[in-house]
Simulated assay, not measured.
Amino acid sequence: MIDVYTWPTPNGHKVHIMLEECGLAYTVHAVNIGAGDQFEPDFLAISPNNKIPAIVDSDGPDGGEFSLFESGAILVYLAGKTGKFLPRGDRKRYEVLEWLMFQMGGVGPMLGQNHHFRQYAPEKLPYAIDRYTNEAKRLYGVIDRRLAKSEWLGCDEYSIADIATWPWLRNWKNQGIELDAYPHLKAWFERIEQRPAVQRGVQVLADRRRPITDDKAREVLFGKTQYERR
């Protein structure tokens, strides 16, 4: 059994989708990041960076309990555990890993900044909005060009690279993107959207998420609480 400590965000959905795609049994533990659950000692014990998601696998690599944080690492771990969505051959495997790293190092951080300055920043800063909107468009273009040559992002089969990237593109409207401008990406997006496991994965804790409108949640996520030394 896998215990997943999570919240309905793009990084959380990556792991929800992977668990569903792999057909693994799992128990969900909600970590309400707007309420500050991510700073609780029990959670920090398995996720020292105070970020969701994290997992605890009762049947780890050596047969004992094993915990893991960082969504990309969790995807690689689950792929290794099940033999799914990460090809064994070196060429395909490294192609998948390079696009997984592209998501972890580029798509996630840059679209996260885009979303922050467009949606949550206390004042509208044109420079920041323009910078991150333009970077979002650049990244969408990189993905679109890749998908013009390949049905899937990492290699010629659906993989953890697709699972990692897709949830970050669900809020394309809020990122200042017109999806029709990226036809290959749009077709790929819609193919993934129709997968039953994906549909189940994005419903995990979906009823618990609320817009960030109150001052307390804003302070927890973006203020002093986030930066306290622990």
Rank of each mutant, 00 (worst) to 15 (best):
G34T: 10
L179P: 13
A54V: 15
Y182T: 11
G64A: 03
H13R: 15
P87R: 10
K186Q: 15
A197I: 04
V15A: 12
L97D: 02
A79H: 12
R210K: 15
P48Q: 06
Q203E: 09
V204I: 15
K173C: 06
K186M: 14
K14Y: 07
E193V: 02
R200M: 07
A217L: 06
D130G: 08
F85I: 06
G60Q: 09
G63E: 10
R91E: 02
Y94G: 03
L68S: 09
Y140F: 04
A79I: 09
R170P: 07
V107H: 10
A30G: 07
A136C: 06
F117G: 10
E135K: 14
Y140L: 03
R208E: 05
D144L: 07
V76Y: 07
M1K: 14
E20L: 02
R210T: 10
K216E: 12
S58A: 15
A187N: 15
T27Y: 01
E40T: 13
L179K: 10
I33M: 01
N114M: 03
E95G: 04
A181C: 05
A164L: 03
G83W: 02
G64V: 01
F189K: 13
V202F: 14
T225C: 00
A217T: 14
D180H: 10
C155H: 13
P196I: 12
A128V: 11
N49R: 11
L19V: 04
T82L: 02
A181S: 12
Y182W: 04
S159K: 13
R118Q: 12
N174W: 10
W152N: 06
A30K: 15
Q199V: 12
E98T: 13
I160E: 09
T82A: 01
W188R: 15
L169M: 15
A121C: 06
R230C: 01
I52A: 10
F39S: 06
V220W: 00
F66C: 03
S58Y: 14
S47W: 13
T27R: 11
I212F: 03
H184D: 10
I46W: 06
T6P: 00
T6F: 00
Q199M: 08
G72N: 12
G176T: 10
L24S: 07
Q199G: 06
K186V: 14
G105W: 07
Y158W: 06
D214H: 07
K84S: 06
Y120D: 05
G201C: 09
G223Q: 00
L169W: 10
A25C: 02
P41H: 11
H16I: 09
D3S: 11
I143P: 06
R191A: 14
F43H: 15
G176W: 04
V204K: 14
V220P: 00
M18G: 08
L100K: 13
T213D: 05
G60M: 05
K124R: 11
Q175P: 05
Y132H: 08
A54E: 14
P122L: 03
N114C: 15
W168M: 13
V142P: 02
A148V: 04
E98Y: 13
A217R: 12
D59T: 15
T133A: 08
W152C: 03
L19W: 02
E95C: 02
N50K: 13
I192N: 11
V28P: 00
A148K: 11
M18D: 12
W99S: 04
G108C: 03
A73P: 07
C22M: 05
L111H: 12
